[in-house]
Design a protein around this nucleic acid. Structure first.
Length: 511
RNA sequence: GCGGGAGUAGCUCAGUGGUAGAGCACUUCCUUGCCAAGGAAGAUGUCGCGGGUUCAAAUCCCGUCUCCCGCUCCA
């Protein structure tokens, strides 16, 4: 029997299976869909919940050095100013219509800055003369203040707006740095990667807040609460699973890059100086989690970030990448955030975020190792990895393809399917009874389905395609011997098992 | 955001101006009784959405949305 584990798998094969069998649907489909938003269907939500539960069990329940948290998605806007996201998320960009390259508007133009000394309005200089890193949005005030202070001015000019930047670009002779075209720039637009919303009924600036672009900050701002409540000291971690939102410029590859997504994240606090060691350790542990749940080692790799691609908070980052149908893609990052966040929040809030080191007799701001995994990306990796086509010969002697998802039993959305051999009135009561027995036994941690539609072979294939590890078949012998057939998804082998103790036996086989 | 491709039944797709189709899947019944079996019947479509041209549009034109590929971006 030729087995081909996804060599020919393309994204369309996967997406159509997901839709056909109820794993994933496009969001708002009856209205034409909304770009890059997806809904988990009846089987998808089981798979996703199983992934999250497996992660939580492994990294929280089975460790001595981890506690959980579920922080709110909405947070004080100052959180994002302190964390650096507000500054790094918002840039006015223009695009050259000739060469299609994008530039930060405030980098391009000699924006004139005026200040006031007394009542006199004086020319202070050009933005580009001051600091090309300053943007016009969140940090706009800072360069005004900085320049005004530097030159001894007390006041500063009104904050420039997007519109005024646009007018200046239009009226200027600034050539495109790349193709040298003049007058080819589009209007500046805010490419703010944080999604905003307004709290309260009035949509003014005062009520403006953000949907969190990462879950980490909810952990950092609760650091003091957690160590007080749990008496923890580093090394220890806080784990959280939750939604985050990023207004990605480019989305796509099914559920790989979406604007709303879920993260399984740990902030692991360690003594400064021990951070590199912990970073390596966490990288190994995270990698092992995927392989233990069945991901093919050959489709996993570790990729350290180059210095120039590090996040603004990160000292070092390693990505765990999976080889998706379209190529390698990050499913998890393990970042060394050092003490960037705790220090930033301490400074901004005035609240000390540190612990008392009894040995050293001093307050210490711990370093942070952050393993951060995408739930949706993990789901997709597990699906793609499990997808298998087998060439088999049918009962009629005709070659055919058996499609199955070789999902780890822990992740499989349906654990067991109970199937009467046929829809026969003699079999039905016993089959229902077996179904009820297994489902209510407490032994099976997940869905136990009943299916009596169409032939038995077809029902086996249906269960194969959604990755159900075990099928229990009630046949005519069952009525006499009180035993059923247990059929294995991967090997298609069958064993006779007594109904008494069946649930425990199924549980044993699922472990 | 730019360029290219695509969108017709649940899925895969055919249909280039003249009655909306196939295979698979689905439902019911009969037969059968362990790996997509056979027979019969049946249901399923605003042809992505909106506008235009035309006696007539799935088909031609314009706009728009969505997906895929390649750029670009990616704290």
């Amino acid at each position: 029997m030729a087995v081909s584990n996804q060599p020919s798998l393309d994204l369309q094969t996967l997406t159509s299976l997901c839709k056909r069998r109820g794993f994933l649907f496009q969001s708002s489909e009856i209205y034409g869909g909304l770009a890059s938003t997806w809904d988990y269907g009846p089987l998808g939500v089981e798979l996703k919940n199983n992934v999250k539960a497996a992660w939580w069990k492994h990294f929280v329940w089975e460790r001595d050095d981890m506690v959980g948290l579920d922080a709110s998605i909405l947070m004080h806007p100052d959180v994002w100013r302190a964390s650096g996201h507000a500054a790094h998320f918002s840039d006015p960009l223009v695009e050259c219509r000739e060469c299609n390259l994008r530039f930060r508007a405030d980098h391009l133009m000699p924006w004139k800055v005026y200040g006031k000394m007394g009542r006199q309005k004086d020319f202070l200089g050009y933005v580009t003369d001051i600091n090309p890193e300053w943007s016009l949005s969140d940090e706009a005030d800072s360069w005004h203040y900085a320049l005004a202070r530097k030159r001894g001015y007390k006041d500063h000019v009104a904050k420039p707006t997007e519109k005024s930047v646009g007018e200046l670009i239009d009226s200027s002779d600034i050539p495109c740095p790349s193709c040298k075209s003049v007058g080819s720039f589009t209007e500046p637009r805010q490419f703010n990667q944080m999604l905003t919303t307004h709290l309260g009924p009035v949509q003014d600036d005062a009520s403006l807040t953000f949907l969190r672009p990462e879950t980490a900050q909810g952990i950092f701002v609760n650091f003091d609460n957690v160590i007080t409540a749990t008496r923890r000291r580093p090394p220890f971690g806080i784990a959280q699973i939750g939604k985050a939102f990023r207004n990605e410029i480019t989305t796509g590859n099914f559920i790989f890059r979406t604007r709303e997504f879920e993260i399984m994240e740990i902030e692991f606090f360690v003594k400064p100086g021990e951070d590199n060691e912990w970073h390596e350790r966490w990288t190994r542990e995270c990698m092992a989690w995927y392989t233990e749940l069945g991901l093919d080692q050959a489709r996993l790799r570790l990729r350290p970030h180059e210095p120039d691609e590090l996040a603004h908070y990160s000292k070092a980052t390693s990505d765990i990448e999976y080889k998706f149908p379209w190529g390698w893609g990050e499913i998890q990052g393990i970042a060394n955030r050092a003490d960037f966040d705790l220090r930033a929040h301490t400074q901004a809030s005035g609240q000390a975020l540190s612990y008392f080191d009894d040995a050293a007799k001093q307050h210490v701001v711990p370093y942070v190792i952050e393993p951060s995994a995408g739930v949706d990306r993990a789901v997709m990796a597990f699906l793609a990895d499990a997808y298998t086509e087998e060439e088999a010969v049918s009962a009629k002697g005709k070659p055919e393809t058996r499609v199955l998802l070789k999902l780890h039993p822990t992740l499989a959305p349906v654990k067991v399917a109970v199937l009467p051999l046929s829809r026969n009135e003699r079999l039905a009561p016993t089959a229902r009874e077996v179904h009820h027995l297994v489902r209510r036994s407490g032994a099976i941690d997940g869905l136990v389905q009943y299916d009596d539609a169409q032939s038995i072979g077809r029902r086996y294939r249906r269960q194969d395609e959604v990755g159900t590890p075990l099928c229990v078949t009630v046949d005519f012998d069952t009525l006499d011997d009180q035993a059923v057939t247990v059929r294995d998804r991967d090997t298609m082998t069958q064993d006779r098992v007594a109904i008494e103790g069946l649930a425990q036996e199924l549980r044993r086989r699922l472990e």
